[in-house]
């Protein structure tokens, strides 16, 4: 049977219900477990193979040698497309993706990260 106003009942049903949207900036949004967010570099694991630099589609990551078997990573978060290819390419898991997604900054310089052994957290006792 054709009739106008078919959706009215559906709309009225939702009058008393809470909105489907969330109160985002005031309530923290939870990202799923394997979300591809901000990149994290673990300098104590890096062996300097540069596969991440080679495979990055947007030239967002650079690895520099800073000492004997010590490496630091320069990551441009504004260039990064969060595809996760570097994490995929790294066979020693020196790169991980965190669930941090709130990366807005007023200044481009703030989006450049340099991660080395000095400014990264102390590695937990490694299994090996």
């Amino acid at each position: 049977m054709q009739r106008p106003g078919k959706m009215i009942s559906e709309v009225l049903k939702h009058v008393g219900k809470t909105p489907a949207t969330t109160n985002y900036p005031f309530e923290k949004a939870e990202m799923p477990e394997h979300f591809r967010g901000k990149l994290q570099f673990l300098p104590h694991r890096c062996k300097g193979c540069m596969l991440c630099t080679k495979d990055c589609p947007s030239e967002a990551i650079k690895i520099k040698k800073v000492g004997d078997k010590k490496f630091e990573a320069e990551i441009d978060l504004d260039r990064c497309i969060y595809c996760g290819q570097c994490v995929e390419s790294c066979f020693i898991q020196a790169l991980v993706m965190t669930t941090d997604f709130e990366l807005a900054a007023l200044n481009r310089e703030d989006l450049k990260m340099t991660i080395n052994e000095k400014n990264s957290p102390k590695p937990p006792a490694e299994e090996e």
């Binding site: 054709q2 009739r3 078919k6």
Partner: peptide
């Protein structure tokens, strides 16, 4: 689908 078949507007 029901809406598409019944809603006159």
């Amino acid at each position: 689908i029901e809406l598409g078949l019944q809603e006159t507007t």
